[in-house]
Design a binder for these strands. Sequence first.
DNA 1: TCTGGTATTGACTATTTAGTCATTTTCATT
DNA 2: AATGAAAATGACTAAATAGTCAATACCAGA
Lengths: 191, 191
Amino acid sequence: MKKQVEDKKAALLEAALKLFTERGFHGTSTAQISKEAGVATGTLFNYFPTKEDLINALYFDVKEKLSRSMGKDVQAQKTYKEKLRKMWYNLVEWGIENQDQFLFVGQFCSSPYITSHTREVVMEEYVFFHDLAMEGLANGELGDYPPEMITSMFYQSSRTIVDYILYSEPQDKNKAIEDGFQVVWQGVSKK
Amino acid sequence: MKKQVEDKKAALLEAALKLFTERGFHGTSTAQISKEAGVATGTLFNYFPTKEDLINALYFDVKEKLSRSMGKDVQAQKTYKEKLRKMWYNLVEWGIENQDQFLFVGQFCSSPYITSHTREVVMEEYVFFHDLAMEGLANGELGDYPPEMITSMFYQSSRTIVDYILYSEPQDKNKAIEDGFQVVWQGVSKK
DNA sequence: TCTGGTATTGACTATTTAGTCATTTTCATT
DNA sequence: AATGAAAATGACTAAATAGTCAATACCAGA
């Protein structure tokens, strides 16, 4: 029973992910989401009292997965540059392998349907990222820029490279990923 | 008469800009837009046959303004680095001074309501940008990266810095703008 | 097999929506 | 002042919407 519950909830989130990205928030009806998920219209509202709750839960879900992928094996790297490189590859590879989630985040990160509460909760998942920037500033590996600026530039650049790879389809994706890292590292590291 | 026509059209675009950014595309009714613009509901459809036509016209309008600001006085600069710096300042300052348009573009650039036709037409306004990257590659000022990658990184970084300035509100905005340029220039220039 | 509580269903509704169109207003020209 | 064509109006409609709720299905434990 518990299993089935999770199944339906996951199916609803998956359906919502696909449809919201394809057709937008108000462009997708709750009926369409239920149908795509293979459940009754009422079932959606058992799990998510309102449509807004649904998209906020979905946003949190996706951002959490992203944050987990992002941090994987980073602390195991020897040098600071290797830590950043690991994180870069985690980010870009996740984006390529999870296109739908990647596009969803891009489309809804500044959307009015995501509440400031959701944004705050999501933020907490990313403190380790901020800490890593602080570490680089403290040990002199990074140029003397505000940490929020560094993290933003790093994260947004990874999105830019994923977009570039998905849209321009370069022959050598790995080259593109490494090129991207070189640009960012040259940009933020201390000369 | 001609004057008034343009007034109403402009009022509709302005109202749509504000409301779409605040409440999303389907979250904003055509009635709300008409009301905000101070015209009758029918008038909107005289100028824009459908709601989609309206948002596409608006998107084109804003992107065109951005492209014009972006290129201003760039060719008058002496060195290549100065050309890029001029463009960087044009971009970031436009974003700060035109927050509403800046946010609108960010929110709708990858939205399903913007047709691929609109995207293509908008693209044409930005060939000079691509050409500038080619120029930098040809004269050895830029690192050996694909030009599309360079333009994307440059443009998206400018967006990141505007976001950073609007959201983090650093004491010294000009320092932040110049810092941003340093990061990007270090990133894409040849070492 | 029976019990009782939980999960699921889908018909239903009150509201909202994009777009229409017959009518009225505006105003340059005569 | 008279004309007429273009612009503006807003009441209207057919369709779609988020969310409800009474009825049903399910299933673990006794």
